[in-house]
Design a protein around this nucleic acid. Structure first.
Length: 490
RNA sequence: GGGUCGUUAGCUCAACUAGGCAGAGCAGCGGACUCUUAAUCCGUUGGUUGUGGGUUCGAUUCCCUCACGGCCUACCA
Protein backbone atom coordinates (compact mmCIF):
# COMPACT_ATOMS: atom_id res chain seq x y z
CA UNK A 1 0.00 0.00 0.00
CA UNK A 2 2.55 2.63 1.05
CA UNK A 3 6.22 2.63 0.21
CA UNK A 4 8.22 0.19 2.25
CA UNK A 5 10.19 1.80 5.02
CA UNK A 6 13.91 2.17 4.42
CA UNK A 7 14.69 0.20 7.59
CA UNK A 8 12.62 -2.74 6.30
CA UNK A 9 14.41 -2.60 2.94
CA UNK A 10 17.78 -2.79 4.66
CA UNK A 11 16.75 -5.82 6.68
CA UNK A 12 15.33 -7.54 3.61
CA UNK A 13 18.69 -6.97 1.97
CA UNK A 14 20.40 -8.77 4.85
CA UNK A 15 17.83 -11.57 4.60
CA UNK A 16 18.76 -11.99 0.95
CA UNK A 17 22.46 -12.22 1.82
CA UNK A 18 21.72 -14.89 4.43
CA UNK A 19 19.79 -16.90 1.84
CA UNK A 20 22.70 -16.54 -0.59
CA UNK A 21 24.81 -18.44 1.96
CA UNK A 22 22.42 -21.37 1.54
CA UNK A 23 20.65 -20.77 4.87
CA UNK A 24 16.85 -20.79 5.20
CA UNK A 25 16.40 -18.32 8.03
CA UNK A 26 12.84 -19.40 8.75
CA UNK A 27 13.53 -23.12 9.14
CA UNK A 28 14.48 -24.80 12.39
CA UNK A 29 17.61 -26.90 12.19
CA UNK A 30 18.67 -26.64 15.76
CA UNK A 31 18.03 -28.59 18.92
CA UNK A 32 18.28 -26.59 22.07
CA UNK A 33 19.65 -28.12 25.22
CA UNK A 34 19.20 -25.21 27.62
CA UNK A 35 17.01 -22.20 28.17
CA UNK A 36 18.45 -18.85 29.18
CA UNK A 37 17.42 -19.57 32.75
CA UNK A 38 18.99 -23.04 32.92
CA UNK A 39 22.23 -21.60 31.56
CA UNK A 40 22.21 -19.14 34.46
CA UNK A 41 21.65 -22.05 36.87
CA UNK A 42 24.48 -24.10 35.41
CA UNK A 43 26.82 -21.14 35.78
CA UNK A 44 26.25 -20.74 39.49
CA UNK A 45 29.20 -22.94 40.40
CA UNK A 46 31.86 -21.09 38.38
CA UNK A 47 33.77 -17.99 39.38
CA UNK A 48 35.00 -14.97 37.42
CA UNK A 49 37.14 -15.84 34.45
CA UNK A 50 36.37 -19.54 34.80
CA UNK A 51 34.96 -21.67 31.98
CA UNK A 52 32.51 -24.54 32.56
CA UNK A 53 34.61 -26.99 30.58
CA UNK A 54 32.58 -30.19 30.58
CA UNK A 55 29.33 -28.72 29.27
CA UNK A 56 28.34 -27.44 25.86
CA UNK A 57 24.97 -25.70 25.68
CA UNK A 58 22.71 -24.96 22.72
CA UNK A 59 20.43 -21.99 23.28
CA UNK A 60 18.01 -20.21 20.98
CA UNK A 61 16.49 -16.81 21.52
CA UNK A 62 15.77 -13.32 20.28
CA UNK A 63 18.66 -10.85 20.11
CA UNK A 64 17.76 -7.87 22.28
CA UNK A 65 21.04 -5.95 22.74
CA UNK A 66 24.32 -5.82 20.85
CA UNK A 67 27.71 -4.37 21.83
CA UNK A 68 30.29 -4.65 19.09
CA UNK A 69 34.07 -4.49 19.61
CA UNK A 70 35.81 -4.89 16.29
CA UNK A 71 36.13 -8.61 15.74
CA UNK A 72 34.17 -9.61 18.82
CA UNK A 73 30.76 -8.80 20.15
CA UNK A 74 28.65 -9.12 23.28
CA UNK A 75 24.90 -9.51 22.95
CA UNK A 76 21.93 -10.60 25.00
CA UNK A 77 19.43 -13.11 23.75
CA UNK A 78 16.02 -13.67 25.33
CA UNK A 79 13.69 -16.63 25.49
CA UNK A 80 10.58 -17.25 27.57
CA UNK A 81 12.70 -18.05 30.61
CA UNK A 82 14.75 -14.85 30.59
CA UNK A 83 17.93 -13.34 29.16
CA UNK A 84 21.46 -14.61 28.75
CA UNK A 85 24.57 -12.89 27.46
CA UNK A 86 26.53 -14.36 24.56
CA UNK A 87 30.06 -13.53 23.44
CA UNK A 88 30.79 -13.96 19.74
CA UNK A 89 34.48 -13.84 18.89
CA UNK A 90 35.77 -14.04 15.35
CA UNK A 91 38.62 -16.39 16.22
CA UNK A 92 36.33 -18.71 18.24
CA UNK A 93 33.32 -18.89 15.99
CA UNK A 94 35.28 -18.56 12.73
CA UNK A 95 35.45 -15.86 10.06
CA UNK A 96 32.48 -17.16 8.10
CA UNK A 97 30.10 -17.40 11.05
CA UNK A 98 31.24 -13.99 12.23
CA UNK A 99 30.33 -12.63 8.83
CA UNK A 100 26.91 -14.20 9.23
CA UNK A 101 26.58 -12.64 12.67
CA UNK A 102 27.16 -9.22 11.09
CA UNK A 103 23.88 -9.73 9.24
CA UNK A 104 22.00 -10.28 12.50
CA UNK A 105 19.85 -7.42 13.82
CA UNK A 106 18.24 -6.76 17.16
CA UNK A 107 14.98 -8.68 17.05
CA UNK A 108 16.28 -11.71 15.13
CA UNK A 109 16.19 -15.21 16.54
CA UNK A 110 19.56 -16.88 16.65
CA UNK A 111 20.79 -20.21 17.94
CA UNK A 112 24.18 -20.49 19.62
CA UNK A 113 26.29 -23.37 20.83
CA UNK A 114 29.18 -22.96 23.20
CA UNK A 115 30.60 -23.18 26.69
CA UNK A 116 29.56 -21.10 29.65
CA UNK A 117 32.01 -18.73 31.32
CA UNK A 118 31.86 -15.85 33.73
CA UNK A 119 33.10 -12.46 32.47
CA UNK A 120 35.34 -10.06 34.29
CA UNK A 121 32.27 -8.23 35.56
CA UNK A 122 30.73 -11.49 36.76
CA UNK A 123 28.06 -12.04 34.13
CA UNK A 124 27.32 -15.57 33.01
CA UNK A 125 27.99 -15.72 29.30
CA UNK A 126 28.01 -18.23 26.48
CA UNK A 127 31.25 -18.21 24.50
CA UNK A 128 29.83 -18.96 21.07
CA UNK A 129 31.47 -21.67 18.98
CA UNK A 130 28.62 -22.17 16.49
CA UNK A 131 25.94 -19.79 15.36
CA UNK A 132 22.78 -20.05 13.27
CA UNK A 133 20.07 -17.58 12.27
CA UNK A 134 16.32 -18.16 12.52
CA UNK A 135 13.43 -15.81 11.85
CA UNK A 136 14.94 -12.60 10.66
CA UNK A 137 13.03 -9.68 12.10
CA UNK A 138 12.11 -7.10 9.47
CA UNK A 139 10.70 -4.52 11.86
CA UNK A 140 12.72 -2.46 14.32
CA UNK A 141 11.92 -2.93 17.98
CA UNK A 142 11.15 0.02 20.23
CA UNK A 143 13.93 1.91 21.93
CA UNK A 144 15.77 -0.32 24.39
CA UNK A 145 15.70 2.02 27.35
CA UNK A 146 12.21 3.53 27.26
CA UNK A 147 10.44 0.56 25.70
CA UNK A 148 7.04 0.98 24.08
CA UNK A 149 5.09 3.74 25.78
CA UNK A 150 2.39 4.63 23.27
CA UNK A 151 -0.70 3.04 24.87
CA UNK A 152 -2.54 2.72 21.59
CA UNK A 153 0.36 0.81 20.06
CA UNK A 154 0.72 -1.31 23.19
CA UNK A 155 -2.86 -2.52 22.80
CA UNK A 156 -2.88 -2.78 19.01
CA UNK A 157 0.45 -4.58 18.82
CA UNK A 158 0.54 -6.45 22.07
CA UNK A 159 3.24 -8.70 20.63
CA UNK A 160 5.58 -5.71 20.47
CA UNK A 161 4.55 -4.62 23.95
CA UNK A 162 5.43 -8.12 25.20
CA UNK A 163 8.86 -8.00 23.58
CA UNK A 164 9.74 -4.43 24.49
CA UNK A 165 8.35 -4.05 28.00
CA UNK A 166 9.63 -6.55 30.49
CA UNK A 167 6.75 -6.30 32.96
CA UNK A 168 4.00 -7.29 30.51
CA UNK A 169 4.70 -11.00 30.23
CA UNK A 170 4.87 -11.57 34.00
CA UNK A 171 1.50 -9.82 34.34
CA UNK A 172 -0.18 -12.15 31.89
CA UNK A 173 1.55 -15.15 33.41
CA UNK A 174 0.07 -14.06 36.72
CA UNK A 175 -3.34 -13.79 35.11
CA UNK A 176 -2.98 -17.35 33.93
CA UNK A 177 -1.90 -18.50 37.38
CA UNK A 178 -4.90 -16.79 38.96
CA UNK A 179 -7.28 -18.65 36.67
CA UNK A 180 -5.60 -22.00 37.13
CA UNK A 181 -5.53 -21.43 40.87
CA UNK A 182 -9.25 -20.73 40.71
CA UNK A 183 -9.84 -23.93 38.77
CA UNK A 184 -7.75 -25.93 41.20
CA UNK A 185 -9.69 -24.48 44.14
CA UNK A 186 -12.99 -25.47 42.55
CA UNK A 187 -11.81 -28.89 41.42
CA UNK A 188 -10.65 -29.64 44.95
CA UNK A 189 -14.15 -28.85 46.12
CA UNK A 190 -15.53 -31.29 43.53
CA UNK A 191 -16.98 -28.71 41.18
CA UNK A 192 -17.37 -29.94 37.62
CA UNK A 193 -16.34 -27.65 34.78
CA UNK A 194 -18.96 -27.48 32.03
CA UNK A 195 -19.47 -25.58 28.79
CA UNK A 196 -22.78 -24.03 27.80
CA UNK A 197 -23.80 -22.14 24.65
CA UNK A 198 -22.12 -18.89 23.73
CA UNK A 199 -24.76 -18.39 21.03
CA UNK A 200 -28.21 -18.20 22.54
CA UNK A 201 -31.69 -17.73 21.13
CA UNK A 202 -32.82 -15.75 24.17
CA UNK A 203 -30.02 -13.83 25.87
CA UNK A 204 -30.58 -14.13 29.60
CA UNK A 205 -29.05 -14.30 33.03
CA UNK A 206 -28.07 -10.64 33.29
CA UNK A 207 -29.26 -7.13 32.58
CA UNK A 208 -27.41 -6.04 29.47
CA UNK A 209 -27.72 -5.37 25.76
CA UNK A 210 -26.55 -8.33 23.68
CA UNK A 211 -24.64 -8.66 20.41
CA UNK A 212 -26.72 -10.13 17.61
CA UNK A 213 -25.52 -12.50 14.94
CA UNK A 214 -27.24 -14.59 12.31
CA UNK A 215 -27.20 -18.28 11.52
CA UNK A 216 -27.58 -18.69 7.77
CA UNK A 217 -28.77 -22.29 7.48
CA UNK A 218 -31.29 -22.01 10.29
CA UNK A 219 -32.08 -18.50 9.08
CA UNK A 220 -32.42 -17.08 12.55
CA UNK A 221 -30.83 -14.47 14.74
CA UNK A 222 -28.71 -15.62 17.65
CA UNK A 223 -27.30 -13.61 20.53
CA UNK A 224 -23.82 -13.87 21.96
CA UNK A 225 -24.42 -14.70 25.56
CA UNK A 226 -24.49 -11.99 28.20
CA UNK A 227 -24.27 -14.73 30.87
CA UNK A 228 -24.35 -18.54 31.06
CA UNK A 229 -26.67 -18.49 34.07
CA UNK A 230 -29.88 -19.95 32.70
CA UNK A 231 -28.09 -22.87 31.08
CA UNK A 232 -26.07 -23.66 34.18
CA UNK A 233 -29.28 -23.74 36.20
CA UNK A 234 -30.81 -26.12 33.65
CA UNK A 235 -27.87 -28.40 34.45
CA UNK A 236 -28.67 -28.14 38.16
CA UNK A 237 -32.22 -29.22 37.23
CA UNK A 238 -30.57 -32.10 35.37
CA UNK A 239 -28.95 -33.35 38.53
CA UNK A 240 -25.46 -31.86 38.70
CA UNK A 241 -24.90 -30.46 42.16
CA UNK A 242 -21.67 -28.50 41.80
CA UNK A 243 -20.77 -26.98 38.47
CA UNK A 244 -18.84 -24.02 37.13
CA UNK A 245 -17.92 -22.40 33.85
CA UNK A 246 -15.04 -20.03 33.12
CA UNK A 247 -15.54 -18.38 29.79
CA UNK A 248 -16.32 -15.24 27.86
CA UNK A 249 -19.48 -13.13 28.10
CA UNK A 250 -20.36 -10.44 25.58
CA UNK A 251 -22.18 -7.23 26.36
CA UNK A 252 -22.99 -4.60 23.81
CA UNK A 253 -22.27 -1.61 25.96
CA UNK A 254 -19.76 1.13 26.59
CA UNK A 255 -16.02 0.55 26.83
CA UNK A 256 -14.18 1.94 29.83
CA UNK A 257 -11.31 1.21 32.18
CA UNK A 258 -13.58 -1.41 33.77
CA UNK A 259 -15.50 -2.67 30.73
CA UNK A 260 -14.46 -4.60 27.66
CA UNK A 261 -17.20 -5.85 25.30
CA UNK A 262 -16.01 -9.41 25.85
CA UNK A 263 -14.90 -10.33 29.32
CA UNK A 264 -14.12 -13.48 31.23
CA UNK A 265 -16.42 -14.65 33.94
CA UNK A 266 -16.56 -17.45 36.46
CA UNK A 267 -20.04 -18.68 37.20
CA UNK A 268 -20.61 -21.45 39.68
CA UNK A 269 -23.71 -23.15 41.05
CA UNK A 270 -24.10 -25.44 43.99
CA UNK A 271 -27.28 -27.21 45.06
CA UNK A 272 -28.49 -27.27 48.67
CA UNK A 273 -26.64 -24.16 49.83
CA UNK A 274 -27.60 -20.48 50.16
CA UNK A 275 -25.97 -17.17 49.38
CA UNK A 276 -24.63 -17.17 52.95
CA UNK A 277 -22.50 -20.19 52.09
CA UNK A 278 -21.34 -18.51 48.91
CA UNK A 279 -20.07 -15.48 50.81
CA UNK A 280 -17.84 -17.84 52.76
CA UNK A 281 -16.77 -19.59 49.58
CA UNK A 282 -15.96 -16.26 47.93
CA UNK A 283 -13.80 -15.17 50.85
CA UNK A 284 -12.03 -18.49 50.94
CA UNK A 285 -11.48 -18.58 47.18
CA UNK A 286 -10.05 -15.03 47.04
CA UNK A 287 -7.71 -15.81 49.92
CA UNK A 288 -6.51 -19.08 48.43
CA UNK A 289 -5.86 -17.48 45.04
CA UNK A 290 -4.04 -14.55 46.63
CA UNK A 291 -1.98 -16.86 48.79
CA UNK A 292 -1.02 -19.05 45.84
CA UNK A 293 -0.41 -16.28 43.31
CA UNK A 294 0.89 -13.40 45.42
CA UNK A 295 2.04 -15.28 48.48
CA UNK A 296 -0.08 -13.07 50.75
CA UNK A 297 -3.69 -12.05 51.37
CA UNK A 298 -3.01 -8.38 51.97
CA UNK A 299 -1.74 -6.13 49.17
CA UNK A 300 -1.84 -2.69 47.61
CA UNK A 301 -4.27 -1.55 44.94
CA UNK A 302 -3.90 1.99 43.56
CA UNK A 303 -2.82 3.37 46.91
CA UNK A 304 -5.25 1.37 49.05
CA UNK A 305 -4.28 -1.52 51.27
CA UNK A 306 -6.58 -4.49 50.82
CA UNK A 307 -6.96 -7.23 53.34
CA UNK A 308 -8.83 -10.17 51.85
CA UNK A 309 -9.30 -11.77 55.23
CA UNK A 310 -11.53 -8.98 56.50
CA UNK A 311 -14.88 -8.51 54.77
CA UNK A 312 -17.61 -6.10 55.76
CA UNK A 313 -21.29 -6.74 55.18
CA UNK A 314 -23.76 -3.98 54.44
CA UNK A 315 -27.30 -4.41 53.24
CA UNK A 316 -28.32 -2.65 50.07
CA UNK A 317 -31.07 -0.71 51.82
CA UNK A 318 -28.70 0.33 54.62
CA UNK A 319 -26.09 1.38 52.10
CA UNK A 320 -28.58 3.63 50.30
CA UNK A 321 -29.72 5.00 53.64
CA UNK A 322 -26.15 5.63 54.78
CA UNK A 323 -24.76 7.31 51.66
CA UNK A 324 -27.83 8.66 49.82
CA UNK A 325 -30.05 9.36 52.85
CA UNK A 326 -32.98 7.64 51.16
CA UNK A 327 -35.14 5.03 52.89
CA UNK A 328 -36.20 2.61 50.19
CA UNK A 329 -38.60 0.84 52.51
CA UNK A 330 -40.86 3.82 53.05
CA UNK A 331 -40.43 5.88 49.91
CA UNK A 332 -42.91 5.86 47.01
CA UNK A 333 -41.77 5.45 43.44
CA UNK A 334 -42.62 9.06 42.73
CA UNK A 335 -40.75 10.42 45.75
CA UNK A 336 -37.83 8.18 44.89
CA UNK A 337 -37.64 9.64 41.43
CA UNK A 338 -37.66 13.18 42.79
CA UNK A 339 -34.93 12.48 45.33
CA UNK A 340 -32.93 10.69 42.71
CA UNK A 341 -33.00 13.67 40.38
CA UNK A 342 -31.07 15.71 42.91
CA UNK A 343 -28.40 13.06 43.40
CA UNK A 344 -28.13 11.92 39.81
CA UNK A 345 -29.17 14.63 37.34
CA UNK A 346 -29.16 12.27 34.36
CA UNK A 347 -31.91 10.19 36.02
CA UNK A 348 -34.57 12.05 34.02
CA UNK A 349 -34.48 9.69 31.10
CA UNK A 350 -34.75 6.64 33.34
CA UNK A 351 -38.06 5.23 34.36
CA UNK A 352 -37.90 1.80 35.94
CA UNK A 353 -37.33 1.37 39.65
CA UNK A 354 -34.33 -0.81 38.90
CA UNK A 355 -32.65 1.82 36.76
CA UNK A 356 -33.22 4.61 39.26
CA UNK A 357 -32.04 2.72 42.32
CA UNK A 358 -29.15 1.29 40.39
CA UNK A 359 -28.06 4.77 39.30
CA UNK A 360 -28.17 6.09 42.88
CA UNK A 361 -26.25 3.08 44.14
CA UNK A 362 -23.54 3.42 41.53
CA UNK A 363 -23.09 7.15 41.88
CA UNK A 364 -23.39 7.56 45.62
CA UNK A 365 -22.60 4.24 47.28
CA UNK A 366 -20.01 2.39 45.22
CA UNK A 367 -17.25 5.03 45.43
CA UNK A 368 -17.26 4.47 49.21
CA UNK A 369 -16.79 0.71 49.04
CA UNK A 370 -13.01 0.52 49.43
CA UNK A 371 -12.48 -2.26 51.98
CA UNK A 372 -13.67 -5.72 50.89
CA UNK A 373 -17.43 -5.49 51.31
CA UNK A 374 -20.41 -7.69 50.56
CA UNK A 375 -23.46 -5.63 49.71
CA UNK A 376 -26.34 -7.93 50.57
CA UNK A 377 -30.13 -8.25 50.28
CA UNK A 378 -31.09 -6.29 47.19
CA UNK A 379 -34.66 -5.11 46.51
CA UNK A 380 -36.63 -7.81 44.76
CA UNK A 381 -37.39 -5.70 41.71
CA UNK A 382 -33.68 -5.44 40.86
CA UNK A 383 -33.05 -9.17 40.77
CA UNK A 384 -35.53 -11.13 38.67
CA UNK A 385 -33.64 -14.40 39.12
CA UNK A 386 -32.95 -14.28 42.86
CA UNK A 387 -34.91 -15.88 45.66
CA UNK A 388 -36.81 -13.69 48.11
CA UNK A 389 -35.64 -13.51 51.69
CA UNK A 390 -37.56 -15.71 54.05
CA UNK A 391 -38.34 -12.89 56.48
CA UNK A 392 -38.74 -9.98 54.04
CA UNK A 393 -40.45 -10.54 50.74
CA UNK A 394 -39.37 -7.16 49.37
CA UNK A 395 -35.75 -8.26 49.41
CA UNK A 396 -33.76 -10.99 47.74
CA UNK A 397 -30.96 -13.19 49.01
CA UNK A 398 -28.29 -11.59 46.88
CA UNK A 399 -24.81 -10.20 47.43
CA UNK A 400 -22.15 -8.45 45.42
CA UNK A 401 -18.48 -8.31 46.44
CA UNK A 402 -16.82 -4.88 46.17
CA UNK A 403 -13.17 -3.97 46.64
CA UNK A 404 -11.75 -0.50 45.95
CA UNK A 405 -15.08 0.48 44.38
CA UNK A 406 -14.78 -2.34 41.87
CA UNK A 407 -17.79 -4.59 41.51
CA UNK A 408 -16.25 -8.01 41.32
CA UNK A 409 -19.31 -10.16 40.83
CA UNK A 410 -22.76 -11.10 41.91
CA UNK A 411 -24.38 -14.02 43.70
CA UNK A 412 -27.72 -15.16 45.04
CA UNK A 413 -29.86 -17.91 46.33
CA UNK A 414 -31.52 -18.91 43.10
CA UNK A 415 -35.21 -18.49 42.58
CA UNK A 416 -36.49 -22.01 41.93
CA UNK A 417 -40.26 -21.46 42.07
CA UNK A 418 -41.36 -21.69 38.42
CA UNK A 419 -44.57 -19.74 38.85
CA UNK A 420 -42.90 -16.93 40.73
CA UNK A 421 -40.12 -16.89 38.15
CA UNK A 422 -42.73 -16.48 35.44
CA UNK A 423 -44.35 -13.57 37.29
CA UNK A 424 -40.94 -11.93 37.73
CA UNK A 425 -40.26 -12.23 34.01
CA UNK A 426 -43.64 -10.62 33.36
CA UNK A 427 -42.67 -7.73 35.68
CA UNK A 428 -39.45 -7.37 33.70
CA UNK A 429 -41.44 -7.16 30.51
CA UNK A 430 -43.39 -4.28 32.05
CA UNK A 431 -40.09 -2.53 32.84
CA UNK A 432 -39.01 -3.14 29.29
CA UNK A 433 -42.17 -1.48 28.02
CA UNK A 434 -41.33 1.50 30.22
CA UNK A 435 -38.11 1.86 28.26
CA UNK A 436 -35.69 -0.29 30.24
CA UNK A 437 -34.15 -2.13 27.31
CA UNK A 438 -31.92 -4.14 29.61
CA UNK A 439 -34.81 -5.71 31.50
CA UNK A 440 -34.83 -9.47 31.38
CA UNK A 441 -36.61 -11.33 28.55
CA UNK A 442 -39.10 -14.17 29.00
CA UNK A 443 -37.48 -17.59 28.61
CA UNK A 444 -40.27 -20.18 28.44
CA UNK A 445 -37.97 -23.17 28.29
CA UNK A 446 -36.21 -22.01 31.43
CA UNK A 447 -39.60 -21.87 33.18
CA UNK A 448 -40.30 -25.38 31.91
CA UNK A 449 -36.97 -26.51 33.33
CA UNK A 450 -37.89 -25.05 36.72
CA UNK A 451 -41.24 -26.83 36.48
CA UNK A 452 -39.36 -30.11 36.48
CA UNK A 453 -37.94 -29.00 39.80
CA UNK A 454 -34.64 -27.24 40.56
CA UNK A 455 -33.26 -28.01 43.99
CA UNK A 456 -32.56 -25.08 46.30
CA UNK A 457 -29.35 -23.68 44.82
CA UNK A 458 -27.01 -20.74 45.11
CA UNK A 459 -24.95 -19.26 42.29
CA UNK A 460 -21.95 -16.95 42.07
CA UNK A 461 -20.43 -14.96 39.21
CA UNK A 462 -16.97 -13.38 39.39
CA UNK A 463 -15.57 -10.99 36.79
CA UNK A 464 -12.14 -12.48 36.28
CA UNK A 465 -10.62 -9.53 34.43
CA UNK A 466 -11.49 -7.25 37.32
CA UNK A 467 -10.11 -9.73 39.81
CA UNK A 468 -6.88 -9.78 37.83
CA UNK A 469 -6.84 -5.95 37.79
CA UNK A 470 -6.99 -6.03 41.55
CA UNK A 471 -4.28 -8.66 41.94
CA UNK A 472 -1.94 -6.95 39.47
CA UNK A 473 -2.61 -3.40 40.64
CA UNK A 474 -3.82 -2.44 37.16
CA UNK A 475 -5.97 0.66 36.79
CA UNK A 476 -7.47 -0.34 33.43
CA UNK A 477 -9.11 -3.57 32.32
CA UNK A 478 -7.24 -3.16 29.03
CA UNK A 479 -3.99 -3.81 30.86
CA UNK A 480 -5.11 -7.31 31.86
CA UNK A 481 -6.66 -8.31 28.51
CA UNK A 482 -4.10 -9.29 25.88
CA UNK A 483 -6.04 -7.86 22.96
CA UNK A 484 -8.57 -5.31 24.22
CA UNK A 485 -11.20 -4.15 21.78
CA UNK A 486 -10.24 -1.01 19.82
CA UNK A 487 -11.62 0.70 16.76
CA UNK A 488 -9.80 -0.15 13.56
CA UNK A 489 -6.86 2.09 12.87
CA UNK A 490 -7.67 4.72 10.23
C1' G B 1 -23.10 9.15 24.01
C1' G B 2 -21.09 13.84 26.71
C1' G B 3 -16.67 16.48 28.61
C1' U B 4 -11.49 16.99 28.38
C1' C B 5 -6.40 16.20 26.93
C1' G B 6 -3.37 14.22 23.23
C1' U B 7 -1.31 12.64 18.01
C1' U B 8 6.12 15.59 15.62
C1' A B 9 11.65 10.24 12.40
C1' G B 10 10.95 2.85 13.32
C1' C B 11 10.90 3.98 19.09
C1' U B 12 11.37 7.75 23.36
C1' C B 13 10.96 12.88 23.40
C1' A B 14 12.21 18.56 22.20
C1' A B 15 10.57 22.88 19.34
C1' C B 16 4.34 25.49 20.18
C1' U B 17 3.94 30.04 25.73
C1' A B 18 4.36 35.14 21.99
C1' G B 19 3.69 32.04 14.03
C1' G B 20 9.88 32.84 11.07
C1' C B 21 14.96 27.08 7.84
C1' A B 22 11.60 20.80 12.60
C1' G B 23 15.97 19.02 16.61
C1' A B 24 18.14 15.22 20.06
C1' G B 25 18.87 10.19 22.10
C1' C B 26 18.16 5.08 20.75
C1' A B 27 17.70 2.05 16.35
C1' G B 28 19.84 2.21 11.17
C1' C B 29 24.05 3.13 7.66
C1' G B 30 29.86 3.87 6.99
C1' G B 31 34.43 3.62 9.86
C1' A B 32 37.81 2.43 14.56
C1' C B 33 37.92 -1.01 18.57
C1' U B 34 38.73 -8.86 20.97
C1' C B 35 35.64 -8.61 28.63
C1' U B 36 31.17 -5.08 27.02
C1' U B 37 26.45 -4.44 29.31
C1' A B 38 22.18 2.42 28.17
C1' A B 39 29.75 -0.06 25.56
C1' U B 40 32.86 3.94 23.70
C1' C B 41 34.85 7.18 19.66
C1' C B 42 34.44 9.57 14.46
C1' G B 43 31.10 10.36 10.42
C1' U B 44 26.05 9.95 8.49
C1' U B 45 20.79 8.66 6.36
C1' G B 46 15.91 9.23 7.89
C1' G B 47 9.96 13.94 8.48
C1' U B 48 3.66 15.46 3.51
C1' U B 49 4.58 17.45 12.11
C1' G B 50 -2.65 12.06 12.34
C1' U B 51 -6.49 13.90 8.11
C1' G B 52 -8.93 17.80 5.42
C1' G B 53 -9.88 22.91 5.34
C1' G B 54 -9.25 28.21 7.09
C1' U B 55 -6.44 32.76 8.74
C1' U B 56 -1.45 34.62 7.24
C1' C B 57 3.76 37.03 3.09
C1' G B 58 4.78 32.65 6.09
C1' A B 59 1.48 27.45 10.31
C1' U B 60 4.28 21.79 14.05
C1' U B 61 2.62 26.50 16.49
C1' C B 62 -3.65 30.17 15.80
C1' C B 63 -9.06 28.62 14.24
C1' C B 64 -12.48 24.76 12.39
C1' U B 65 -13.70 19.52 10.44
C1' C B 66 -12.81 14.50 10.68
C1' A B 67 -9.99 9.99 12.42
C1' C B 68 -7.70 7.37 16.33
C1' G B 69 -6.32 7.19 21.43
C1' G B 70 -5.85 8.44 27.02
C1' C B 71 -8.56 10.15 31.25
C1' C B 72 -13.29 11.61 33.48
C1' U B 73 -18.46 10.69 32.92
C1' A B 74 -22.97 7.83 31.35
C1' C B 75 -24.91 2.51 30.33
C1' C B 76 -22.98 -2.19 32.41
C1' A B 77 -19.84 -6.75 35.35
Amino acid sequence: MTDEHELVKIRKGKLKKIREQGIDPYALHFRRTHSAATVQECAQKISIGEVLEDLEVAVIGRVITVREHGKSCFAHIRDDSGDVQIYVKSNTVGEKAYGLFKLVDIGDFIGVKGKIFKTRTGENTILVSELSVFSKSLQTLPEKWSGLKDVELKYRRRYVDLIANKDIKPLFKLRSRIISSMRRFLEEKDFLEVETPMMQQIPGGAMAKPFVTHHNTLDMDLYLRIAPELFLKRLIVGGFEKIYEINRNFRNEGISTRHNPEFTMLELYQAFITYEDLMQLTEEMFCVIAEECLGKTSFEYQGHTINLKEWKRLSFVEAIKKYAKIDLESISDKELKNSAKELVPEIRKMNSFREIVDAIFKKVVIPNLIDPTFIIDYPERMCPLAKKKRDNKNLTERFQPYICAIELGSAYSELNDPMEQKDRFLDQIKDRKMGDDEAHLMDEDFITALEYGMPPTAGLGIGIDRLVMLFTNSSSIRDVILFPQLKPQK
